[in-house]
């Protein structure tokens, strides 16, 4: 099944297929609403526990407001639910603790994650927040693949890792920003140096 045909239905957009099976309604922080099957929800430990605790019936789903997921936007949540629908019914993988961890990225997931790094970053945060183990595995594997064959200098650029010198400079800047008096003292010191004074005091 292609990414485009994955059975996540955005309530705003489409006619809802009439199915007897149980589904739930969720709302993103930008008010996009989604209907997701009960089986797909099971991929997310967080959502699965939530709906179990709420004990909704089919009528509740229709009559009560959609369940709000306040820290995930609609674009990200759509990807999450597409992934959950595609992988519904699959067993949650058990971690054997090995390093390097062997993770295969299926074709569907690769296409789903053919997105810019900003959205991939949000997708990983969502997978972590919603505790979707296999989505976290494949998305983190995609990030790890970015390191393949890179030198430390290239890795710094890929992963936006500041060097120790840059970190030190940022730390100094932050300290100065927090303490205006420190900046004043620094400026005064620089001014005296320009004037040729040897002693600060």
């Amino acid at each position: 099944m292609s990414v485009e045909n994955a059975p996540v239905v955005d309530v705003d957009e489409a006619a809802i297929p009439v199915e007897k099976k149980m589904y739930y309604r969720f709302e993103s922080n930008d008010k996009k609403e989604f209907r997701v099957s009960e089986l797909a929800i099971q991929q997310s430990e967080t959502l699965n526990r939530l709906v179990e605790a709420m004990g909704y019936t089919s009528e509740d789903v229709e009559n009560k407001p959609a369940i709000a997921i306040e820290n995930i936007d609609g674009k990200t949540l759509k990807l999450v639910f597409q992934w959950c629908e595609h992988h519904k019914g699959e067993a949650i993988p058990v971690d054997d603790g090995s390093v390097p961890k062997i993770v295969e990225i299926p074709e569907f997931d690769a296409k789903l994650m053919d997105i810019d790094n900003g959205l991939l970053f949000k997708l990983i945060w969502a997978a972590d927040y919603l505790n979707i183990v296999q989505l976290l595995n494949v998305s983190c594997k995609k990030v790890a693949n970015m390191a393949q064959g890179k030198t430390p200098a290239q890795l710094r650029r890929v992963y936006l890792l500041p060097s120790d010198e840059e970190d030190e400079a940022a730390k100094r800047a932050a300290q100065e920003a927090q303490d205006p008096r420190a900046r004043e003292v620094e400026e005064e010191f620089e001014e005296r140096k320009r004037q040729g004074g040897n002693s600060f005091f």
């Binding site: 390093v99 970053f121 945060w125 997978a127 976290l136 970015m146």
Partner: peptide, 29 residues
């Protein structure tokens, strides 16, 4: 080269990324 802020990932996710690297990749990292 597109970039990705790895160290700003949540703890669990950063761990998962690093776990996909072999010891030589970890040394280089």
């Amino acid at each position: 080269m597109p970039s990705f802020p790895a160290l700003r990932l949540p703890h669990v996710a950063l761990t998962e990324v690093l776990r996909c690297l072999d010891p030589i990749d970890l040394f280089i990292f």
